[in-house]
């Protein structure tokens, strides 16, 4: 299968701190790839380099077959970034935000594109409200919707569920799964193990600037001693309790 992203010996330092110390990994086309790591592991640095916001100090990387240093414009045509902090215009309304991006993607019918996405993400009622009145979950949904405009082949989601409540998180998961089903490659960073487990086709663990393990979930599990069989009374997790009480998963 064709590679969507290929990273070789990537290095990056900020002042005296070496953040990436020769990172290697690849992402196949159409898969959900999760980069797992604790805070400060260098996840955001990798996202910024791959999305042409930062230049690496050493090593190479290609995105959609294009070298990120020599052909950044080609890379930008293939990608979309939903950064750690919502990349929305606070003063504009949800609809205006979408129309703005559709115009910048030179689409012929920005209004229709905006209406479709608002509908799909359950934001039609809030469409004409200023972004500053949106809740965290709504903001994140609009943020992702903005990233889908123009149908980029590869979508970068940098910690898309950090700071979201459980319901909003599950909504984002649903969106990500739908995206991957439609053939889009998803590059996801997260610090939540459960998120990687739920979503990712393949997982890479970034630790102190290097990938220390990568593979599918079963592959990763094989690296550890065989599972022991234990009998434990299964208590519901607090998250399950919360979701049962609140009783809504689909409603927006």
């Amino acid at each position: 299968m064709k590679k969507a992203i290929e990273v070789r010996e990537l290095r990056k330092s900020f002042k005296d701190t070496e953040v990436l110390k020769g990172t290697n990994f690849e992402v196949k086309q159409g898969e959900i790839f999760a980069l797992l790591g604790s805070n400060g592991a260098g996840k955001t640095t990798i996202v910024k380099i791959l999305t042409t916001l930062l230049k690496q100090d050493g090593g190479t990387a290609t995105v959609n077959g294009f070298d990120i240093l020599s052909q950044p414009d080609k890379v930008r045509q293939a990608i979309s970034l939903t950064g750690q902090f919502a990349a929305v215009d606070e003063i504009l309304t949800g609809r205006e935000n979408l129309i703005m991006i559709a115009k910048l993607r030179y689409l012929k019918n920005p209004r229709e594109v905006a209406d479709d996405l608002l509908e799909r993400f359950g934001l039609t009622d809030a469409a004409d409200r200023k972004m500053s009145t949106y809740s965290g979950g709504m903001r994140r949904r609009l943020d992702i919707a903005m990233s889908l405009i123009g149908r980029p082949q590869i979508i970068f989601l940098d910690e898309p569920t950090t700071g979201l409540d459980p319901e909003a998180r599950i909504e984002v998961w649903k969106i990500v799964k739908e995206l991957a089903d439609s053939g889009t490659t998803v590059f996801l960073t997260t610090q939540y193990l459960e998120e990687a487990e739920q979503l990712a086709d393949r997982i890479a663990i970034l630790h102190e600037g290097r990938i220390i393990a990568s593979g599918t979930l079963p592959e990763l599990k094989k690296m550890f001693p065989t599972a022991k069989v234990e009998y434990v009374e299964k208590q519901p997790s607090l998250e399950e309790i919360f979701l049962t009480i609140v009783g809504k998963k689909e409603e927006n």
Partner: peptide
């Protein structure tokens, strides 16, 4: 300072 700046700069504009 805002995320929107990063979005613009990752777009082919």
């Amino acid at each position: 300072q805002r995320g929107i700046f990063e979005r613009f700069h990752t777009m082919p504009i």
